[in-house]
Design a protein around this nucleic acid. Structure first.
Lengths: 227, 227
DNA sequence: CATAACTGCGATCGGTGTTCGCAATTTAGT
DNA sequence: ACTAAATTGCGAACACCGATCGCAGTTATG
């Protein structure tokens, strides 16, 4: 675990760089050219050092990715005061989280293994749980609710990013494949949904869609049991 | 797109293997040792052929992963008759989907880029939309609902798999880190949730939890607009 | 029966994460 | 003050990975 190990020992020569420096360089690369571009070699090159040197700051690339993730998690504003309405507060938080995802598209590519929070992630979780404080649900379920909301944020971010990305040709091929299924009279529901969904278009702001869905999911999730 | 290209040309010598064979070998490897183990080299070795030969059947590793995904999607039973209650039907479908995820843990590692469905994926989507047919919602939203349910399935599968996986030491480290934050009197909500969630344990069947959450989310999602 | 199309595949390219060993440097303990 | 331990940067290497090229051998079509 990165957060446990100290950044520097006390004995040797002063380190030329720092974890924060590595993290910043890696984030820059990933922002510009995707998560894969944040490779040890490229990060080292960006820092003007040897790639083997990076392992003095970080014990694996996964560690570096943990650092990156925690760093951008810190970009979510946690000073927004809570209104007391859990649904509104969590939806607002999710909204800000999604914005960070759009700003750092590689976030949707880091596998969200549970329990990898660093200090900023911890602050984030604390805020989310504070927002959920008025809800009379066991803590375990609240934790799962937060995880679930984050999964949804990632999902929506993926959608919004995917539509802007240069996958035009790929999507064209896929859509052609779907159309074929539609004209073959099999899969009528898919055909109907496609026709409806693509023809009618979605000039609607994705943000409104996101908040609507989020609100509905949350309301469904935290409503008291009806025995 | 894999599904568009024909599997075999008509001119040359008979192919020794087939896409289905590649797919089965790859799935076997991935089931046993994770998605990374389903590399071109290892699949080739498992088939007793040269790795370059695989590119006669598949134009990239992504294609192979598409084939794998579609194949296991076919393991979801789509012959279960619909009850007519969209919530129940979709929850049941999600349940069966989650079972497939538990049987093929690597599924949670394939990046769920939208619109990569093969024939079985298409059947799956058709079934899901059929289940949602009674709901008076635009097709676009129904599509998004299905995607959302799938994201949730992945999320739950990840949780269930993670708790069984041999991450005992990793989680121990993470939990120690959280405990530290708890004892530091900062992050009181996290501390409370941890105490509650870990002490009280969850001897509850995860399946019940899954269905409960799923049902709530769906109910919230498909309820008619309240102006 | 010639030619176009296809197959299997060894060799190879450029990339990745990670480890090792070594010289140089700094601090801690005496 | 000086030895010894700890730590740093880093070149070289290892073991993988996905993908491409070119060539010999095979098959079906015109």
């Amino acid at each position: 675990m990165v957060w446990a190990r100290p950044e520097r020992g006390a004995r040797g020569p002063a380190a030329v760089h720092s974890r924060a420096e590595l993290t910043a360089a890696a984030i820059g690369l990933a922002d510009r050219s995707g998560l894969a571009a944040a490779s040890m070699r490229q990060v080292a090159k960006a820092l003007g050092t040897g790639q083997a040197s990076l392992y003095r700051y970080v014990s694996s690339r996964d560690d570096l990715i943990d650092l990156m993730t925690d760093a951008v998690t810190g970009e979510v504003d946690l000073d927004v005061p809570l209104t007391g309405d859990p649904v509104e507060d969590v939806v607002a938080l999710a909204s800000r989280t999604k914005a960070v995802h759009l700003r750092h598209p590689w976030l949707v590519d880091v596998s969200p293994e549970p329990l990898r929070l660093g200090p900023r992630g911890l602050d984030y979780l604390e805020y989310a749980l504070r927002a959920l404080a008025p809800v009379p649900l066991p803590g375990r379920i609240k934790l799962e609710t937060v995880a679930l909301m984050n999964a949804l944020v990632t999902q929506f971010a993926r959608t919004e990013l995917g539509s802007s990305r240069e996958d035009a040709d790929r999507r064209a091929g896929q859509i052609a494949y779907l159309r074929e299924a539609a004209t073959r009279r099999t899969h009528p529901h898919v055909a109907a949904a496609m026709a409806e969904g693509v023809e009618a278009g979605s000039p609607q702001a994705p943000q409104a869609m996101f908040e609507r869905t989020m609100r509905r999911v949350l309301t469904g999730l935290i409503r008291p049991d009806s025995p």
